[in-house]
Design a protein around this nucleic acid. Structure first.
Lengths: 199, 199, 199, 199
DNA sequence: GTATAACCGAGACGGTACGTCCCGTCTTACC
DNA sequence: GGTAAGACGGGACGTACCGTCTCGGTTATAC
């Protein structure tokens, strides 16, 4: 028998409250607020919750924001695994599509913005949102190197920086409005082919 | 009496104060604050200036930050113009070196972070800091396309995104401490050669 | 089966908890808190008891304080009954000695202080602590009037106010530290003799 | 010329705000609140003032309350100076009349209540409200001793305690409603004559 | 002997007020 | 008229308690 009753003494914390807080936080962030403009009192009010209930779970605003952002699911796209090119396109196209969504976009901004001041925020976000994709991308590239689709001396980290960085750049300073649908394809093709003239 | 000084009546604004304010702002940003955490009262105190003196010149914090960041010089490196590869390396290596400097790094962070919250900050930063380099880079690439160093169907914008994005990426999520000295070279070489196996 | 115990079903209330709560309350009051500063959570913690256990017995802080103060014993001194003067001295000297005790002193303060805010506190205190002494004092004075020790037209209530009031006054605004040992005697002598010059 | 300009740098504090704060405080106290129930936020709101403006002047609620109570004028009654008896009656009758007024009554309660916990409050109140009367009463009694109206060995402090204490007692535990109009006279007469039968 | 019921401690709940910090504005005296 | 100083009304911060509400568990009587 495994009665490993982990429950602590006293009334257990309300799952309902927790969800309401996270939801309120994401709503307010998506409503166009930056992390700094976002107020705990507004979150509490919107969630129908006392401030205490928030501070019992998170020590400060940033911690809450991190966890809230972390709850946004960033599922990996299905990778066919047939060609490196197609898999990379799938991965990058996910980023392109997310750029059009308020929540994901804000999450990215927040993660980028806090990096120097509060390491924890960006590190946490990195772990939860970026890491899985980077792992997937690394596998795709490594596989490519192994099976000869990519050149054997490829610097995988560098290749990832080129691909990911390009998407970040377009996200930030790309053309107004939605990014072109074939952007991911073109980025991958250019990166794989290089700039050199075809021999 | 006809003193022809066009200046308005009264005491002229103190240049000294203005400089002190800008300096204090940059110092505080470099001391690890985000734009939101940065406080006008702290700037005024650090600059030895009344808050009035700040608000007379800038309507709010953001405007001040924009101008402060703008004062950071972002000189272009000398470009030999002999080969596309060398010129690109020179441009990217500047970014690598700046990543080691507190001020420039923080400026970059601020610019990246504020993009949603206050378009003006990141746009202004783009104009002042990135635009000139992008123009230079575009020239280098276009010249390469023209003279056959690069393949004729190269998407120059996309190539710039790959190169710039990689540097931004390393800046943010690269290894701890200074970036390796040959980073720029390796980025350029990989980008130009592509990932495909050498035929 | 007809066990005639009237007690309701279920676990009986813990006498131990009740005593601990009262003790904790008095301790905290004696530690220099006013009724308002006194916190239920501190009482519960000090008593090693859940807040529920307190609120099950008392509806609010005031009720608890009232009951706690009521548990302080205020025994009457033995009255020889031989002379009005000696009996009055005995009664007043009790008050003088109590002024030196933390608990009794604080109880007095609380009773005095809460009179407007919460009538119940001061009324209850009056009933339990002052009333018995006033009854005794009234008897002493009445006996004196009856047996010619005191003048026949003496206003007994007023005489009691003079005597009691003087002790309260010294309690509150008297000299620092313990009151002089002969204070009760002197108060009684002055009150009985009056201020007028001896004929 | 006496340009002893005491003014400090910066904008001077608003007398208007100060008065509004004091008035709001007294209003709320008179509206039946104890010191503890009284809230700074309510005071600020009622006074149309930011909390900062209050805290700039007073460190905490108690300090404010003390000063607010102190502003209640407690003018001395005119003393004819013809007889000790009449002057004492005048002094005590003032206390009787004040007992009927909400504000003065609350002030007294507050002063009494805080004595143990926060010495400052009661000491300050004592200085401002009670001291002047005690000085006056002492003078009256001393004059009486000097000119033979009172007996030469009278303990003036003790006499004052009897008189003042009696009034405090009636204030607290006297009959419901207003005190009888001739109370002061009767207290003084009893105290001066003593309890002893007239020789 | 086993339900059942009221108790117990712990501690989370929605709130209110605290005293602090900073906002962007206003108001002085001085230069 | 510009300047440093600093007060202004306002709003959010994170903390402390309020009095209420669950929890899992204990301890009695009642069946």
């Amino acid at each position: 028998m495994t009665t490993e009753h982990q429950s602590r003494a006293g009334r257990p914390r309300s799952e309902r409250a927790e969800k309401a807080i996270i939801a309120a936080t994401l709503d307010l962030i998506a409503d166009g607020m930056g992390v700094a403009e976002l107020s705990m009192e507004a979150i509490a009010a919107r969630a129908g919750v006392g401030k205490t209930t928030i501070y019992r779970r998170w020590a400060n605003k940033e911690d809450l924001v991190v966890d809230a952002l972390a709850t946004i699911r960033h599922p990996l796209p299905p990778l066919a695994g047939e060609s490196v090119r197609d898999d990379l396109v799938a991965l990058l196209d996910l980023a392109r599509r997310e750029a059009g969504q308020r929540r994901a976009r804000c999450a990215m901004n927040v993660a980028l913005s806090e990096s120097d001041r509060s390491k924890r925020v960006s590190e946490r976000f990195y772990k939860l949102a970026l890491e899985p994709r980077r792992v997937a991308m690394r596998e795709v590239l490594s596989r490519g190197v192994a099976n000869g689709e990519l050149r054997p001396d490829l610097d995988v980290d560098l290749a990832m920086a080129l691909l990911t960085g390009a998407m970040i750049f377009f996200n930030k300073w790309g053309p107004e409005g939605d990014l072109p649908e074939d952007l991911a394809e073109r980025v991958v093709d250019h990166a794989m082919a290089g700039f050199a003239p075809r021999a």
